[in-house]
Amino acid sequence: MTTAPRAEKLTLFLAEDEEGTAILLKFLLARGGYTVVHAADGQQAQTMIDQMPPPTLVLLDIMLPYLNGLQLLAHIRQKAEWKHVPVIMLTADSNERDIEQALAAGANDYMVKPFNPRELTARLQRFVKVAS
């Protein structure tokens, strides 16, 4: 899994509360050439969304403490600078209701945990290509 050097730096905003998964994702994403900005709960994520410039991509876990991923997604879609950023939702198991709700609320894609690292990288890459 080698990565070609990029001309521009890609930023990915990650909201994930489970420490092990967050570490794994940060590792995989950093390896894929992304600068990862990580929030460990919903409240922290909301504060960061309000303060930072829009990233290239957003990866949101649906089950987060304080504010869940769906609430964060609604927040993102209401912010003028962030509302066009592609958002990928992370959901545990294949909870269809969560997935339906997320897609209806404006998520661009979803990944079911446990995930295949190659599949995650490929999906993210698809959005980066579209964005560029």
Partner: peptide, 8 residues
Amino acid sequence: QESIKGDA
């Protein structure tokens, strides 16, 4: 192992 699937 619980976080991933596939050939990894």
